[in-house]
Design a protein around this nucleic acid. Structure first.
Length: 261
DNA sequence: ATGGTTGGTCGCCAA
């Protein structure tokens, strides 16, 4: 079983690259964020022709999440109870082969002095409350997506510059610790305790060429899933996008592989 | 290094 999460920053612009990713990796599940398109425009024909079922929840211009899977998804559920911004398409849950998979595009927050940061913290709190009420950490569960939080200083190219800033602030990191205490492991850190791995590089400042990155795209899982995880890697070549059609997203795909359940 | 790029949409906003 192979699962990939990728913030594509517009599925319309990135479709040919998504099709290439499916050919290259043949994942069982692909979680996409920032599709930025309404459901009527979703390119399901092209994706189904690659052998994938499509679950999606989009909106105009912003946000948008989708889960592609080789097996038909069951119990598709958009959003979560009490969502403070119920119209923002950011959460999509599916069940595939008995594993519950929740695709997340967490509120960015803009900057820590912004009202949007307060909204982010509230959104996170309500989401966690719903997760705890409605899910069981002893059962197979995966949370994958763009968390817009770098879990620790190991996940930041220059922790001094980023100390206390958006994506690295203590309240954001505490929220992730809470998920971990509930029973979700950060799969990349199960086998790679100290390795510096990034998943997002700003389009500006030549950030990718200088490797000024953060790891904010995460795959978390409960113990029955985490114990079967054999690797987590980032497809940096996709962020380079030297080959293939079009330009890169500012995020790279994160790829987790599991022993057969 | 507080610079500047990309996408959606069409003057800016969001990331």
């Amino acid at each position: 079983m192979k699962l990939i999460t990728w913030n594509v920053n517009s599925l319309r612009t990135r479709l040919d690259r998504v099709l290439g990713l499916l050919d290259r990796h043949r994942p069982d599940v692909l979680c996409l964020q920032e599709t930025k398109m309404v459901d009527a425009d979703f390119p399901r024909t092209e994706l189904e022709s690659k052998g994938y079922h499509c679950a999606f929840w989009g909106q105009r211009a912003y946000n948008g999440v989708a889960v592609l899977s080789r097996e038909s998804p069951q119990q598709v559920e958009a959003s979560f109870d009490g969502n403070p911004v119920p119209d923002a398409a950011r959460v999509l849950g599916v069940t595939v082969d008995g594993w519950r998979i929740i695709n997340l595009y967490v509120v960015n927050g803009q900057s820590i002095d912004s009202d949007k940061y307060a909204l982010k913290l509230n959104w996170l709190e309500v989401f966690a409350r719903w997760l705890h009420a409605r899910h069981d950490p002893t059962q197979p569960l995966i949370l994958a997506g763009d968390f817009n939080i770098a879990p620790s200083d190991r996940d930041v190219y220059d922790p001094t510059v980023w100390k206390g800033k958006l994506l690295c602030s203590e309240p954001e990191r505490k929220w992730l610790c809470g998920l971990q205490q509930w029973g979700l492991a950060d799969l990349l850190r199960v086998n790679e305790a100290d390795k510096q791995v990034f998943s997002w590089w700003d389009y500006r400042y030549g950030a990718f060429a200088r490797n000024l990155g953060l790891r904010i795209d995460l795959i978390l899982a409960t113990q029955p899933v985490a114990s079967r995880c054999t690797s987590v890697v980032v497809d940096r070549d996709e962020r380079k996008a030297k080959s293939g059609p079009g330009k890169p997203s500012d995020h790279a795909p994160v790829i987790a592989t599991f022993e057969h359940p």
